[in-house]
Computed example of a mutant assay.
Amino acid sequence: MTALPSTRRTRAAVDAAVGAGRDLGLTVTDAVVLHDLFSVVVHLSPAPVVVRVPTVLPHGTDLDVQARRQRAELGVTRWLADRGVPVIAPSPLVPREPVRRDGFSMTFWEFVAEDRGKEPDYAANCEIVPDLHAAMRGYPGRLSFLSAAEPRFVTESFTLLAARPDLIGAADLDRARREWRVLEPLVRSRAAFESAFPGIGVQPIHGDSPPANIFPGVDGDRYADFELVTLGPVEWDLAALGPDLEAAYDRGARRNGMRALNADVMSFVNAVGMLRAIAVLTLTPQLPDLAEYLEPAIDRWRATPFAGGLTG
């Protein structure tokens, strides 16, 4: 499905969401697309239900892999919602399980009206991310270590990019591969990470830049989009945001009696995040505008220390 042109891909995702919703007993008279980039997010009106249908996926991501991640996301958000944490929660009107239809795996969420007049305040958002981290500490479910870094995707992407000099030059790709040889062991192994960064604990974290995934509801802000929920250092959730926003997080951490961000770990997660951005170039056949969007990040990467200053 992800090889379809974008308009057909969106239509196919909407049709699948509507069909799945009706099969689950929801009354659907209109389907309103709320968002369409890596996923199609559609409100099944008049039901108070939103369906998220991932459509642009890393190579090698099959429905079983998707479903495992989606179950983790549904489990974490339901657990947080039950404890009064302001999240967009799974819909109570359908079973809390991923649903497969027409080649897609999708999840169903409560509809929350958006305050469309509110501009994002990323400093304020960063300052409340420690509240989320504090709440997530006690999550009892099993999560993989730094699965949000998608190490297999990064490794395979560098192989694919060797045939795409139009997307990245040979010298840049060589550097990226050499950096990955240093960083990959710390991504794949919790023991290796903890040996490299003694005293830095790991815990359940959002996994996908929560300051950029706080939804402005008319009834207040809510944490959203836990698709990459993972076990890792809290620094991962602040990757690539810069010193000012890191300082905002630290203010919230002090308020929660938590440690400040560690500079060495920030260098590590920033370096991994840069390589992940390069790997995302392989998705440009599905989203042609990605290459132009990622160009400033890759320019910044060229000016950074090799592998975030780690020597391997």
Rank of each mutant, 00 (worst) to 15 (best):
R251K: 11
I214W: 00
G199A: 13
M1N: 00
R181S: 06
R181G: 01
A248E: 04
S157Y: 09
L132C: 05
A260P: 08
F158C: 05
D299A: 15
F268N: 07
R177G: 10
F193I: 12
S209C: 01
L245E: 10
P305G: 14
V280E: 10
V229K: 00
A260E: 14
D221R: 00
A196T: 10
R177F: 03
Y293F: 04
L93E: 15
D62V: 12
A16V: 09
G84D: 12
E97R: 08
E292A: 11
D62N: 13
R175E: 08
Q66K: 10
R8N: 05
V41F: 01
I278C: 11
R22I: 11
W236F: 07
E179T: 10
Q203K: 06
F108Q: 04
Y223R: 00
R116N: 02
E73H: 07
V65W: 02
R22T: 11
L186Y: 06
P305K: 07
G273N: 11
V50N: 06
P165G: 07
L238T: 14
S45F: 08
A124Q: 12
D23Q: 05
A20E: 10
P48R: 11
N262P: 01
V202E: 05
D131W: 06
L173D: 04
V269F: 06
I278V: 15
P5V: 08
R8G: 02
R259D: 15
A297T: 12
V65Q: 07
G103W: 06
G201Y: 01
L26M: 11
L44A: 02
I128N: 02
E184W: 03
V53G: 12
E110S: 12
G103K: 04
A81N: 01
A239L: 14
G220F: 02
L74R: 07
Y139Q: 03
D102K: 04
P288K: 03
T159E: 13
D115E: 01
R137Q: 06
D121R: 05
R254A: 14
